[in-house]
Every structure is written in structure tokens, then in C-alpha cells.
Measured scan of single mutants.
Amino acid sequence: KFNKERVIAIGEIMRLPNLNSLQVVAFINSLRDDPSQSANLLAEAKKLNDAQAP
């Protein structure tokens, strides 16, 4: 279950337009470290993406 959620979360994070490459890598590394947190990490990535919108 967590592996599928992690793959989906990674794909979504990679498509967030307002994150820089270091932020994307940090979120992906966090997902690798704890796949059970996929939903929480994706939500945090989306919040950061929205906050950094031009």
C-alpha cells in the first residue's frame, strides 16, 4: 500500500511548478525514508508550492 502511495506522491511532487530542485529532492528523500508519511509529505509539498507561487 505505502509503495503505491509513495510512487503517486513522488509523481505529484515532481509536477509542482513552484518548488525548486532542492525542495523536490528533499521531499522525495523524506518519502523514501518513511513511505507511510506519503499523504502528509504530499500535503506539505503542495502547501509550500502554493506559498511560493508568483
Rank of each mutant, 00 (worst) to 15 (best):
N29K: 10
E44A: 11
V25R: 12
E44S: 06
N18F: 09
N20L: 10
S38H: 14
P17G: 08
A9H: 03
K47E: 06
V24A: 04
D33L: 11
P17F: 05
M14Q: 06
V7F: 13
N18R: 02
N40M: 11
A45K: 00
N49R: 00
F2E: 15
N3D: 15
A9G: 02
L16M: 12
Q37T: 09
I13Q: 01
E12R: 11
N29S: 13
I13V: 03
L42T: 06
P54V: 07
D34I: 04
P35K: 04
S30D: 09
P17V: 06
N40R: 11
E12D: 06
P35A: 14
V7S: 10
K46F: 07
A45S: 02
N20S: 13
K4E: 15
K1Y: 10
N49V: 02
N40A: 12
G11I: 12
I10W: 03
I28C: 09
A9V: 10
L16H: 02
P35G: 11
A43R: 05
L31Q: 01
L41I: 12
R15Q: 09
V24D: 00
L41D: 01
P17I: 10
K4T: 13
N40V: 09
A45H: 00
S38G: 04
D34R: 06
Q37P: 03
N20R: 11
I10K: 03
A26K: 08
A43G: 06
F27G: 01
I13Y: 01
L19C: 04
A53D: 10
L19P: 00
K4M: 04
K1P: 12
E5I: 12
S36E: 08
Q37I: 09
R15P: 01
D34L: 05
V7R: 14
K46P: 00
G11K: 11
G11S: 09
L42N: 01
E5N: 06
S36Y: 09
I13S: 01
P17S: 07
L22D: 12
P17D: 05
K4Y: 06
Q37N: 08
L22T: 12
A9R: 02
P54G: 12
D34Q: 08
K47V: 07
K1M: 13
V24H: 02
A51F: 09
P17H: 08
N20P: 01
N49S: 07
F2S: 15
L19K: 00
D34H: 14
F2N: 15
R6I: 15
P54F: 09
L19N: 00
K4H: 09
D50E: 11
A53W: 05
K46Y: 09
N3Q: 14
A39C: 14
V24T: 06
Q23C: 03
L16S: 01
S21Q: 08
P35M: 12
Q23E: 02
N3C: 15
A53Q: 11
A39M: 14
M14A: 04
R6C: 15
N49W: 01
V7N: 10
I28N: 02
A9Q: 03
K1R: 13
N29H: 10
N20A: 07
L22R: 12
P17Y: 04
A51P: 01
L31I: 13
K4N: 13
K46T: 05
L22H: 12
S38P: 04
I10H: 03
P54Q: 09
Q52Y: 05
R6M: 15
S21E: 07
Q52D: 02
R32D: 15
N18T: 01
P35C: 14
A51R: 11
A26P: 00
Q52I: 04
L16Y: 04
D50H: 08
N3I: 11
F2M: 15
P35Q: 05
V7P: 01
K46M: 08
R15D: 04
A26I: 12
N49G: 01
A43I: 10
L41R: 05
L31S: 02
V7Q: 14
N49K: 00
L48V: 08
L19I: 03
L22P: 06
A43N: 09
L16W: 01
I28K: 02
A26Q: 12
I8S: 04
N20C: 13
I8V: 07
V24M: 06
N49I: 01
S36F: 09
N18I: 01
S38D: 04
E44R: 11
F2Q: 15
R32M: 14
P54N: 10
I28E: 02
S36G: 06
A53I: 09
G11P: 01
A43Q: 09
F2C: 15
F2W: 04
K47T: 11
D50N: 08
K47R: 11
M14D: 02
K46I: 10
M14Y: 05
R32G: 14
N29L: 14
K47W: 10
R15G: 06
N29M: 10
A9I: 12
R6S: 15
V25L: 12
I10N: 02
F2V: 15
Q37G: 10
L48C: 03
V7L: 13
L22K: 12
D33C: 12
N49P: 01
F2R: 15
F27N: 00
N49L: 01
D50S: 07
I10M: 12
A45M: 03
P17N: 06
S38N: 14
R15V: 07
L19Y: 00
N49M: 03
A39W: 13
F27M: 05
D34V: 04
G11F: 10
A9K: 02
N20V: 06
I10R: 03
A51E: 09
L16K: 00
N40E: 09
I13F: 03
K47S: 10
V25H: 13
S38E: 02
I28D: 02
A9C: 05
A9S: 04
V25C: 14
R32F: 15
L22V: 10
L42Y: 04
V24F: 04
R6V: 15
Q52S: 04
I10S: 04
E5F: 05
N18M: 03
L48P: 00
D33H: 08
D34C: 14
D33W: 09
I8A: 05
Q23G: 01
A26R: 08
P17A: 08
I10Q: 07
E5W: 05
V25A: 10
F27D: 01
I8K: 10
K46C: 08
N3Y: 08
V25Q: 10
L19F: 01
E12W: 06
A26W: 09
P54K: 09
N40Y: 10
I8T: 03
S36P: 04
D34T: 05
V24N: 02
S30N: 07
L48R: 03
Q37L: 09
A39G: 11
L31Y: 03
D33F: 12
N29I: 14
I13P: 00
K46N: 05
L19Q: 00
F2T: 15
E44C: 12
N29E: 13
P35E: 05
P35Y: 06
S38R: 06
K4V: 04
L16R: 00
I28T: 03
V25N: 10
P54C: 14
K46D: 01
I13K: 00
V7I: 12
I13C: 02
R32V: 15
P17E: 07
V25P: 01
N29A: 12
N40L: 10
A53Y: 07
S38L: 14
I13W: 01
L19S: 00
V25S: 10
G11L: 09
L16D: 00
D34S: 07
Q23T: 03
E12I: 14
A53M: 09
L31N: 00
N20F: 06
S36I: 07
R32T: 14
A51H: 07
A39K: 12
L41E: 02
K47A: 10
A43C: 13
N18Q: 02
P35F: 13
N18G: 02
A53K: 11
K46H: 07
N18K: 01
L16G: 01
S36C: 13
P54S: 09
L42P: 00
A51S: 08
